[in-house]
Simulated scan of single mutants.
Amino acid sequence: LADLATEIALCRAFLYDVADRLDAGDETGLSRDSSTAKIRCTEAAKQTALEAVQLMGGYGYTREYGME
């Protein structure tokens, strides 16, 4: 869980940095960084969801719990 939380925090910081640079008008290397942020954030989200289902076990698949 700590690894997932760290990855989410890093993705959030990187995404906010890219957004701040976009708002400031600094477009140097922005397409590469925005693509990298998109890939990294979606992979972190997917990995977090998969790990959450694994942690929940069978409850991760049943409709009685929000994880399904």
Rank of each mutant, 00 (worst) to 15 (best):
Y61M: 03
C41V: 14
T28G: 06
G29K: 06
Y16Q: 14
L22V: 13
F14H: 12
M56A: 15
A52Q: 06
S31R: 13
T28D: 12
Y61Q: 10
G60W: 01
Y16E: 15
C11N: 15
R12E: 10
G57N: 07
T36Q: 09
A5V: 09
L15I: 12
L55E: 04
L50I: 03
A37V: 13
Q47V: 04
T6N: 06
E27I: 15
L30W: 08
I39D: 12
A45D: 01
Q47R: 12
T42A: 09
E51L: 05
S34Q: 04
L22H: 11
A52C: 09
R12P: 00
E7P: 00
K46Q: 11
A24H: 12
F14G: 03
V18P: 00
F14S: 05
D26W: 04
R21K: 13
Y16A: 12
D23Q: 06
R12A: 14
A19D: 02
V18W: 01
Q54E: 15
S34A: 13
K38Y: 11
L55M: 08
Y61V: 08
E7K: 10
V18D: 05
T42H: 11
A44K: 01
R32S: 08
A2M: 14
L10T: 07
A52S: 04
A45E: 05
T42V: 03
A45Y: 09
E51V: 02
D20T: 08
T48E: 03
D3F: 07
E27D: 15
Y61D: 07
S31I: 15
A2G: 07
T48W: 05
D33N: 10
G25D: 06
A9W: 01
A24Q: 14
D23F: 08
L30M: 15
E27W: 13
E51M: 05
A45W: 03
D23N: 06
